[in-house]
């Protein structure tokens, strides 16, 4: 609980990559994921993102909170969507059988297709975000934000609040145990909720007091002396970063041109079989 950031230290290509480059990558992927209404590009991005993640953090990506989120979303978007999507018309055949849920009706091709597309879009973005978060140390992130023109004081506030969460949690635990030690009832759930109020007041008061002391301590260490402190990040933009940026930008431009000339490849209205879901053009 002491470390809220999801940063995983390492030495890979993406760890040494400038935070700004990774931010740009994330933005481009987010645009590309929503360009087409077909599973192909976002599916490709998801796979690329997964490979990048694996290169950077190895097996730890499977335990990462965001990977879990993608899997949970798969359940909701692909399985449930098939039943509940209002655009669903054509019941899907599972070896000649239809599957249906009470109240919602049959599992449909349209529901499956829309769920799949949406899942791939979201999860390709989440995958990139995971790459970004797990390879960018919070201080590099702050420096990156600052370099992009966000004021130093604001960046500092962000990093400060990141830390306030675990501290407040710990403080809440201390106050809670102190009050229990003095006989605060804790048997039923109702008691627990009642116990929140007496905990809340000292928590707020002590946080405010702490902030006052912290601000004094910060001043003692020169905070506020300048809006442009010396940057301590060792990361510089390398040639390979620029290459990566150029490739993704070119890809984006190509995709935008395709999108404008050929449309979004939406198959929703042409689904009659499983194979149709993975066709690029309607029969």
């Amino acid at each position: 609980m002491s470390d809220m950031s999801m940063y995983i230290p390492g030495n890979s290509f993406f760890h040494k990559c400038d935070a700004k480059v990774k931010m740009l990558l994330l933005v481009i992927v987010s645009i590309m994921a929503f360009l087409f209404h077909s599973p192909y590009l976002s599916g490709f991005l998801l796979i690329v993102g997964a490979v990048f993640n694996y290169i950077s953090i190895g097996n730890r990506m499977f335990k990462h909170m965001l990977t879990r989120m993608i899997i949970i979303m798969m359940f909701f978007l692909i399985i449930l969507h098939g039943f509940v999507n209002p655009r669903g018309e054509t019941p899907a055949s599972f070896f000649g059988q239809e599957i249906s849920l009470p109240f919602f009706g049959a599992y449909t091709y349209e529901g499956f297709y829309l769920g799949l597309v949406f899942w791939l879009r979201l999860s390709s973005i989440i995958m990139m975000a995971e790459l970004f978060i797990s390879t960018t140390s919070p201080s590099d992130l702050i420096h990156g934000l600052h370099k992009l023109g966000v004021p130093y004081n604001f960046c500092f506030m962000v990093s400060m609040s990141l830390q306030l969460i675990p501290i407040s949690v710990r403080e809440a635990q201390i106050i809670n145990s102190a009050q229990r030690a003095r006989g605060l009832p804790e048997k039923s759930i109702v008691d627990r909720f009642k116990g929140l109020l007496p905990m809340f007041v000292p928590l707020v008061v002590s946080s405010l007091e702490r902030m006052e002391r912290t601000s004094m301590a910060l001043e003692c260490r020169g905070f506020g002396n300048t809006n442009n402190p010396t940057s301590m990040s060792d990361i510089v933009i390398r040639k390979s970063d620029i290459a990566l940026m150029v490739i993704t930008l070119l890809l984006l431009v190509a995709c935008v041109i395709i999108r404008i000339r050929f449309g979004s490849f939406d198959m929703t209205d042409h689904l009659t079989s499983w194979a149709d879901c993975f066709r690029l053009v309607a029969r």
């Binding site: 260490r221 020169g222 905070f223 506020g224 002396n225 300048t226 442009n228 402190p229 010396t230 940057s231 301590m232």
Partner: peptide
């Protein structure tokens, strides 16, 4: 490094 960096 925080203090010294504030001193530029």
């Amino acid at each position: 490094t925080f203090g010294p960096s504030n001193l530029e």
